[in-house]
Computed example of a mutant assay.
Amino acid sequence: MTVVNDRRDASTKTAYDGDARTAIASRLLKGSSSRSFDPIVELDWEAPLEEGKYFLPPHVISLYGTDLWNAMTEEERIELSRQEMAHVLSVGIWFENLLNRALLLRLMREDPAAATSHYELTEMGDECRHMTMFGKVIERSGARPYMMRPVDRAAMYALPLVMRGTMLWVITLVGEELFDALQREMRTDPQLQPIVARLMQIHVTEEARHIGFARDGVMRRKPIRGRFETLVAANLHGLGGPVFRRLFTNPQMYKRAGIADPRQAARIARANPYFHETTVKAFAPLASFLRQADLMGPLGERLWRRSGFLP
């Protein structure tokens, strides 16, 4: 079946390759049927947390290597890792909720019999399980979830309305690849709590399909997208830089971890060269792909660099 979505009229020099997109979706559907996980079954919710193990590896924690970090006891460092993990998973829940709502709106315009529609429905099912898994791990860790501010909720309500064409897939990649790059490194760290390590293994496996689908969506549109679509998609993703910089150093995390001056801790984290190294490493695969897709515009690049995600 040839997918007609995202096509231009017959006068367009290069046609959208709907057959190839359908083939990708069909392959991912088969992969989903054989490599999907139910977190309620896959994670051992009854196992006790292991004494002395971290909820994120120390070297990726925002204050790692600073004077403030060096003055902490081991128990205080582990508590900070618990709070940063809970915050990261909370942000993951927010984003996967956003992606599902954008895909639901997209499905109103798509052919319900197309393989691409079927894979998008499958991906939404994956994301629902991920949100459940994230929430249960936060609860199991003994932390509390972090809630969105009113301004964040307003943005989340509005964003699905503009997530169309290339922008849909670029925003998807911004939300997924930053975490995926770090999880691939962290999931085998021997200092990690087993329940968190298993969460990361499941998430990396299933997100690989989502990332592949989004990257293919970007590249399929590359020959047919117009100048305006390219200009918008190549630059607006840069707004993710200051947003993630603020989220990754949320003073509320430091307050819950018992740090006396949480705002000062956030300033220290933002200036921390070790944390800068971590954020650059997280963004590197996506930055490379955006350049390959001719979607790293001057404003987008400037915003990511000023926020510490580019060297």
Rank of each mutant, 00 (worst) to 15 (best):
residue 20 A to K: 00
residue 37 F to R: 02
residue 237 H to C: 03
residue 36 S to G: 00
residue 115 A to G: 01
residue 179 F to Y: 14
residue 57 P to K: 03
residue 230 T to W: 01
residue 238 G to C: 02
residue 118 H to T: 04
residue 7 R to V: 08
residue 44 D to Q: 12
residue 7 R to F: 11
residue 35 R to K: 07
residue 42 E to W: 03
residue 49 L to R: 07
residue 166 T to N: 11
residue 94 W to Y: 11
residue 214 A to V: 10
residue 191 Q to T: 15
residue 290 L to D: 00
residue 278 T to E: 04
residue 193 Q to K: 05
residue 284 A to N: 11
residue 113 A to E: 13
residue 87 H to F: 14
residue 192 L to A: 06
residue 23 A to E: 13
residue 137 V to A: 11
residue 19 D to F: 04
residue 182 L to G: 14
residue 11 S to Q: 13
residue 238 G to R: 02
residue 86 A to L: 09
residue 37 F to S: 07
residue 169 W to V: 12
residue 48 P to Q: 02
residue 15 A to H: 14
residue 273 P to T: 12
residue 281 K to I: 05
residue 159 L to G: 05
residue 40 I to G: 04
residue 26 S to Q: 07
residue 169 W to A: 15
residue 40 I to E: 09
residue 309 F to P: 12
residue 7 R to A: 06
residue 61 I to N: 09
residue 257 A to C: 08
residue 37 F to Y: 12
residue 99 L to W: 01
residue 20 A to D: 11
residue 3 V to M: 10
residue 57 P to V: 02
residue 86 A to N: 08
residue 78 I to T: 00
residue 11 S to N: 07
residue 310 L to T: 04
residue 272 N to H: 06
residue 149 R to I: 08
residue 168 L to G: 07
residue 215 R to W: 01
residue 286 L to G: 11
residue 86 A to T: 13
residue 181 A to W: 04
residue 259 I to L: 13
residue 256 R to P: 02
residue 227 R to D: 13
residue 242 P to G: 03
residue 84 E to R: 00
residue 77 R to A: 15
residue 271 A to E: 13
residue 145 P to Q: 10
residue 206 E to V: 00
residue 263 R to W: 09
residue 252 Q to Y: 06
residue 16 Y to E: 05
residue 129 R to T: 11
residue 72 M to T: 14
residue 266 A to D: 03
residue 129 R to M: 11
residue 130 H to V: 08
residue 260 A to C: 02
residue 170 V to S: 12
residue 15 A to D: 15
residue 83 Q to S: 02
residue 162 V to Q: 03
residue 6 D to W: 14
